[in-house]
């Protein structure tokens, strides 16, 4: 049985932990709201772009464009998006586990795996374990803007066009709701255009200079937009995960404080009882 003083000390320490987790939860909730707004704002652009590509790729020969053409796969690029910081439950562990599993499944065709890690947690993990890390980007969620996505998107396109990478996958957390994240594995390059369901509508579009040129301008933008969307998703998912994790931690702390307080009171009570007994038996002996 720990002494009264020890229990008292534990209660204080759990209380201050609880204060920290509660504050972190609030911060995460505020950041989550902003991240969610950003996703909603980015949606119209991304939908419009996808429609355009669907239309355009139906109008010209796919194999003519390097970003659409499929090559023999010798080098696979894997882009893993994690968070920079912990304290968000199983957010980072899950994505890393999934990435490792995917990489193992690629190894059946025996390509070279090159990684690009976004987020400090992923960078640390994969570098420590001797994976080929081509590029790492840390701390970019602190100041997230479209330029960041463009820079990374362009360097991926460069790797692909120069045939340093023959296929590029993205592994990231998709934001479902504040309490739910989905891990998504997606092929980024070569681009797989969605088939348009309805057949060519009759309207003849005028392209200036021509459809293929417009397409080759629009595809890099599409890649950048994809990266941007992925960053926003992952960012929102991270804050969601952190909020839930901190909520749980706060609740656990409350429970712990309750049970410790009970223990403290019991110990105090039994101490008083013992003292009383001593007094009474002492008085008895005096008679």
């Amino acid at each position: 049985m720990p002494s009264l003083k020890q229990i008292k000390r534990r209660i204080t320490s759990v209380k201050s932990t609880q204060q920290i987790t509660r504050a972190m939860k609030m911060v995460a909730a505020a950041k989550l709201r902003r991240a969610q707004e950003n996703i909603i704002k980015a949606r119209p652009y991304s939908f419009k772009l996808r429609d355009l590509i669907k239309d355009l790729s139906g109008r010209c020969d796919r194999s003519q464009h390097p970003l659409l053409a499929v090559r023999d796969t010798k080098e696979i690029g894997v882009v893993v998006v994690t968070a920079d910081r912990g304290f968000c439950g199983s957010f980072n562990t899950n994505i890393i586990k999934r990435a490792v599993k995917e990489i193992e499944s690629f190894e059946e065709i025996d390509p070279t795996i090159q990684m690009m890690t976004i987020g400090k947690k992923g960078s640390d993990y994969f570098k420590k374990r001797g994976y080929n890390v081509l590029q790492e980007h840390n701390q970019l969620f602190n100041d997230l803007h479209f330029g960041v996505a463009t820079a990374i998107g362009e360097s991926l396109i460069d790797f692909y066009v120069q045939e340093k990478l023959d296929r590029i996958y993205l592994i990231y957390n998709e934001f479902k709701s504040a309490i739910q994240q989905n891990i998504v594995v997606e092929q980024l390059l070569p681009i797989v255009p969605e088939e348009s369901e309805e057949e060519e509508c009759g309207i003849d579009f005028l392209y200036e200079p021509d459809a293929l040129t417009v397409l080759s301008n629009i595809l890099p933008l599409y890649i950048n937009m994809q990266m941007w969307r992925v960053f926003l998703e992952s960012n929102a998912a991270e804050h969601g995960a952190r909020m839930t994790a901190m909520e749980n931690a706060t609740n656990n702390a409350i429970e712990l404080i309750d049970s410790l307080t009970l223990q403290y009171n019991k110990a105090r009570q039994s101490k008083i009882t013992t003292e009383l007994l001593e007094v009474v038996s002492g008085a008895e002996g005096m008679k």
């Binding site: 309207i203 003849d204 005028l206 417009v214």
Partner: peptide, 19 residues
């Protein structure tokens, strides 16, 4: 500002797309 020069659009323009 189109890639091949500046252009104007009024209502009823023919379907058109450019950078």
């Amino acid at each position: 500002p189109g890639i091949e020069g500046s252009f104007g659009v009024l209502v009823g323009h023919t379907p058109f797309m450019t950078s």
